[in-house]
Design a protein around this nucleic acid. Structure first.
Lengths: 146, 146
DNA sequence: CCTAATGTCTCTAGCAACTATAGCTTCAAG
DNA sequence: CTTGAAGCTATAGTTGCTAGAGACATTAGG
């Protein structure tokens, strides 16, 4: 049985994060030692590794919750799991497309900066006037962050 | 003079977001009508467009704050603005690299899902076992998992 | 066996960057 | 003059953690 610190180290997840996952019900309540410290076995370890890997792939905690509840029902069709993964793939592809456009605009901005005064700075100018920008970000509902 | 709703529509920014920007000092306090409603002129419109465009490019509000204060000093060197833009470009490039890796792993997961039962589902399996995954995310030092 | 240094406990609050709700007041159209 | 949309303030919620305070548990060294 591992204490929370060892588990975190093994899974690459910080201790407060593990407690947070328990709090929101992603991990079951851990067993406790006589001194009230959390103890984890192999099952908890695997579940945490699953969560972390899915987080690394950008799945939201909600999606992970769904995937975990699916993985508890091995006899059902995996269509739902497939759908979640496909949605995630679509999300990643759209972010990728947006980021690629962003990158080229930023590159143009940076290259054009001749190192003079602010008044002549292309960075400021391009940001101030959307029409100087080739790319169209008219209604991006998706976040650029994360 | 525009009301907040018109301004928001013109700039593609939601009304509560404009009030939020004012609250955190990104926009100056707006003039008010006799009935206490905010009124905006061309200068506010340009400033909001600048913010919006920079947000679209993924700049944080802090970076935008810096860029705005730079743009108010047209005689200074634009090295600082250039540095902010370069940092943003580096950030975008690193996200891009990560997302590209993510995309290929998700694609593999989805393609391999044969549409059977959860017990055989590659999506669940790959998520549960990091060693099934070629790409190495986020914790290269802790991941001797093999 | 005692002590000091970690590790763990709970609880609360904070971060970005908004978004939503409630309960008002003001404004423009008919 | 009335009605409905749009505005106002203030507060709280969102996601996925992270940081801090103050108290208890465990462990390594002397």
């Amino acid at each position: 049985m591992l204490t929370i610190g060892k588990l975190g180290e093994a899974a690459g997840v910080k201790v407060p994060t593990i407690r947070y996952y328990e709090q929101i019900g992603l991990l079951p309540e851990a067993e406790r030692s006589s001194g009230n410290q959390r103890l984890y076995g192999r099952k908890a370890m695997e579940r945490l590794a699953f969560i972390r890997h899915a987080r690394d792939l950008g799945f939201t905690l909600e999606a992970i919750r769904d995937l975990l509840s699916l993985s508890d029902k091995p006899d059902q069709s995996c269509a739902a799991a497939d759908a979640i993964a496909k949605a995630q793939l679509a999300e990643v592809e759209s972010r990728l497309a947006r980021l690629t456009a962003l990158k080229s605009e930023l590159e143009r901005m940076v290259v054009q900066c001749a190192g003079g005064k602010i008044a002549d700075c292309r960075v400021i100018e391009v940001l101030g006037d959307h029409s100087l920008c080739a790319t169209d970000h008219r209604h991006p509902e998706t976040e650029a962050t994360q």
